[in-house]
Design a protein around this nucleic acid. Structure first.
Lengths: 242, 242
DNA sequence: GAGTGGTCTAGACCACTTT
DNA sequence: AAGTGGTCTAGACCACTCC
């Protein structure tokens, strides 16, 4: 008897929830330092160790970044270290050239059945579609088609995209206040169609990686759906299994 | 002044090292429980909290598995939960059929330049090559060619492979005492050659995923090199980015 | 009830950064 | 010197499993 309460949640997880609220609400914003562990302990009325455990988990999820002697910071896609967190494409040689995004098109449309399902919005809702190229050392390697909910990305135009120096996610974060937390990728092999082949400067029918990605922000809310076609003659997709 | 010692290593990491030795030496073997935190604390002369932190890290690395109320166990590939830890292939539908390994060939050879480099052995050393099929619901989906250092896998034959019900890694662990810890996969898109096409029952030239994997055991020692060709018409490679 | 891992606290001290 | 995160300890109590 004396059954366990099925809703038991340790204190540090409740603290974590409160801290997540502070993140989602924008009280703490990307790149900024959050209050010190001592301050948080006082604010929440718990010991420092309990705050610490909450931060530990959030750091493990790449939401926060600890810096000894300085403080704890909200992770940001502006940080160059997080550039390759979502892009797993690596050049064959040892060269570590970093990719350049070349926006090609950006237009409005209405969500079809599939886009609506993936983005968890109503069919027919406004969406924005972006087509762009990713180049490594001036060589086109990826063609991306990106579907975004229009609701969230109001004011996104080709000019905005072209004017931005940096990664897409860093633009989304800075300009639209949307932080990408995690993503799922579904990878298949497909043959290059004519138009894609031209853009990637390969022959039609050449095998390409098809990488379909759904990206989530706080609360596991999907906010991006993209499909990339990767040319893998001079690059490969690197995955670490732990 | 009073510079920091550049070799500073916290106590819990030293404990972790000692525990890694116990794992590598086979003192604690896969599937078995390790001593309780109290016992370990006494054995190493530290507090329980310090042992705990060491175990925390090892659990995060999938070396140990905690079970509240029971104890802490050495992770094992015999555990069904770790089956999909390295195999990221998922059927298109929601069906969660589990794959069946069909060994086709197994022969001895001498390591060429590339195999030697990848496996960190001398060129010309004995290696074992295995070819096998992976089937989902009786449908062939993957052809694998697997290179193993002969030194370690003495006694591995086609009969042994065929007689084993379970995953390859579970065989390696049980029969050869080799636990696979982590792996790196390099993924490309390629066209099916004639023989592969026949085995996968697809047309020659169809795009396939080429998944090249190097697998490591304790101490980051490479002990397997394999190349898989994946048919992605009814399955896809799923990757979670965090 | 006994044993295990899991949580929480309070305090001391160390390592690192900044002023 | 002051402030931050990082380590280590000792003890109390909780949740879970097994006998």
């Amino acid at each position: 008897m004396a059954q366990t309460s099925p809703t038991f949640s340790p204190l540090y997880r409740q603290i974590k929830s409160l801290m997540l609220v502070a993140l989602e609400s924008g009280e703490w914003s990307p790149g900024q330092a959050i209050p010190s562990e001592q301050e948080l302990a006082a604010r929440f009325g718990v010991s420092q160790g309990t705050v610490r455990k909450a931060i530990d988990e959030m750091a493990a999820e790449n939401l926060l970044v600890r810096k000894q002697g300085k403080g704890t910071y909200v992770a940001s896609h502006n940080d160059p270290r997080s550039l390759f967190r979502f892009l797993r494409l690596v050049p064959e040689g040892e060269g570590l050239s970093h990719p350049v995004s070349v926006p090609l098109e950006c237009w409005r449309a209405k969500a079809g059945q599939e886009a609506a399902r993936v983005l968890a919005i109503e069919p027919g809702s406004p969406i924005i579609i972006v087509r762009r190229l990713l180049e490594f050392s001036a060589k086109p390697v990826v063609v991306d088609e990106i579907y975004l909910p229009g609701e969230v990305f109001q004011g996104l135009t080709l000019e905005v995209l072209q004017g931005w120096k940096g990664s897409l996610y860093s633009l989304f974060e800075t300009r639209f206040g949307l932080r990408m937390i995690r993503a799922e990728e579904r990878i298949r092999a497909v043959a290059a169609d004519r138009r894609t082949a031209e853009m990637l400067r390969v022959k039609e029918g050449v095998p390409l990686l098809s990488v379909e990605r759904v990206t989530f922000t706080y609360g596991d809310r999907p906010v991006e759906w993209r499909r990339g076609l990767y040319s893998t003659d001079e690059h490969f997709y690197l995955n670490e299994l732990n």
